[in-house]
């Protein structure tokens, strides 16, 4: 949702209405109607709910329209650790996904170019996990790292884990799950970007006295920046809002709850819709600010 907002503002900013204004409006109408109906309306509703106050005469889950800005301060004070945790996990998992995906995408997109069959096979392997439900795969990891699994017992035997320490429910497990689940969203944009990379630029770089590592930093990396940007956005944004991996039902525990889990609990368990909505708005706003700053900083607006 946040991403949609971001990209829509971008496209609005760059579109230039031409003389055939009516045709343009006619062509834009479905898109604008879609944005209005499925983005703007829910957003306004969300913001309205986030400002509601408890109905003094009502029961659980009964709120009345109000302008309770205080809702925001309350959730920030109460759930700051979760916000911090969400963004830390998202940052770490995104960096890990990038570090793992980049060499993989580089191999598939550049090194494997002479072997189309290998390229296709490897791409299929990257996408293959998508054919199995995200939830099932996450549960499978929970089984693999279960307390009695050989991995955990081996770690305990070798002293890497204390006898009463386990893997499931730890931040490590959650970040592992997040990284694992979102790696394809990193690999594919990186692949499409690297696949188009003209290797003659790399030759030019080495011809101009740049060592292989310099060529990578000065040529390959900047040229694959669009892929890095879209990959990191496609990974960071959903991870920041993810509530499956960190949930106690999957890989997490109460010590790993992220903002998504807090929103879920407020919405479905406590029936505190204003708090849940305020948190959603905050999450969205924080992501928008981070993303805008990031894109600006990386200075690649024209490459996007």
């Amino acid at each position: 949702m946040a991403f949609a907002a971001f990209s829509s503002t971008k496209s609005n900013g760059t579109s230039k209405p031409k003389k055939t204004g009516r045709v343009v409006i006619a062509l834009l109408a479905p898109g604008l109607a879609y944005l209005g109906a499925f983005f703007l309306t829910p957003l306004i509703a969300l913001i309205m709910v986030s400002l509601q106050a408890q109905d003094p005469y009502g029961g659980i889950g009964d709120y009345i329209p109000a302008f309770e800005i205080n809702n925001y301060f309350l959730v920030i004070t109460e759930y700051f650790p979760h916000m911090f945790r969400s963004f830390s996990y998202a940052l770490i998992a995104t960096i890990l996904a990038l570090l793992i995906s980049y060499p993989l995408a580089y191999f598939i997109g550049v090194k494997a170019r002479p072997y189309p069959l290998l390229q296709k096979l490897m791409l299929t392997l990257v996408i293959a996990p998508f054919f199995i439900s995200f939830l099932l795969r996450t549960l499978a990891w929970k089984q693999i790292f279960s307390n009695e699994s050989w991995i955990v017992t081996t770690l305990q035997d070798t002293g890497l884990l204390e006898a009463d320490q386990y893997v499931v429910g730890t931040p490590f497990m959650v970040i592992f799950g997040l990284t694992y689940n979102f790696i394809p969203f990193m690999t594919l944009p990186l692949y499409t970007s690297l696949e188009r990379l003209d290797t003659r630029y790399l030759e030019a770089g080495s011809d101009l006295y740049a060592s292989p590592s310099k060529v990578f930093r000065k040529v390959t990396l900047p040229l694959s920046m669009p892929g890095i940007i879209s990959g990191t956005l496609l990974t960071f944004i959903p991870i920041a809002g993810d509530y499956i991996n960190a949930s106690g039902d999957f890989l997490g525990s109460s010590s790993t709850a992220m903002l998504g889990n807090v929103i879920e609990a407020n919405y479905l368990q406590i029936n505190d819709y204003p708090s849940a909505s305020a948190l959603s708005v905050l999450l969205m706003g924080a992501i928008l600010i981070l993303v805008a700053g990031y894109v600006k900083k990386s200075g690649t607006e024209d490459l996007l």
């Binding site: 003209d198 003659r200 630029y201 040229l223």
Partner: peptide, 14 residues
């Protein structure tokens, strides 16, 4: 100690 003027020029677009 060699430099090349490439057929495609290969000027860095960034």
């Amino acid at each position: 100690p060699v430099n090349t003027v490439f057929q495609s020029y290969a000027l860095f677009p960034h």
